[in-house]
Amino acid sequence: MAPPEEIKGPEANALPDSATLPAELAALYLCISPAQLADLRKSKRPEGRTGSNSNPSVIRPVEGGAAGPKDPVLYQLGTLREYAKAHPGPSAFDTALNSGLLGWVSAKLPFFAEREPRIKRGKRVLIGGAWDRADPLREQRFIALAKGRIRFTSLTCAEAAVSLWANVASHAAFAEKGLALLRSETQAIESSLAATAQLAQTHPQD
Rank of each mutant, 00 (worst) to 15 (best):
D132E: 14
K8R: 14
L21W: 00
S154V: 00
V58N: 03
K44M: 14
F142A: 03
F112E: 06
H203V: 11
K177R: 15
R115I: 04
R45E: 09
R124C: 01
G100T: 05
A158V: 03
L15Q: 05
G68R: 15
L164E: 14
C31I: 01
R81S: 05
P88T: 10
A92M: 08
A84P: 04
A200E: 14
A96M: 03
P46K: 10
P4A: 07
E185M: 09
G51T: 04
L30I: 00
F111E: 02
T95A: 11
I143V: 10
F174L: 09
G128N: 07
Q198S: 09
F152P: 01
S18Q: 10
A158Q: 13
G65L: 01
E139C: 02
P204I: 12
V58A: 00
S18H: 12
I119P: 00
P72T: 03
K123H: 06
R133G: 02
S43C: 03
D132S: 04
W165M: 06
K177T: 10
A169N: 14
Y29D: 02
G68V: 04
Q76F: 01
K8G: 13
E185A: 15
E47L: 07
I150P: 09
R141F: 03
F174A: 02
E139D: 11
A160M: 08
V168D: 15
R133E: 02
A146P: 02
D206E: 10
R60M: 11
D206H: 12
T202S: 14
R149V: 05
R133H: 05
I150T: 08
E116I: 08
P136F: 11
V162Q: 13
A146Y: 01
D71W: 01
L80V: 00
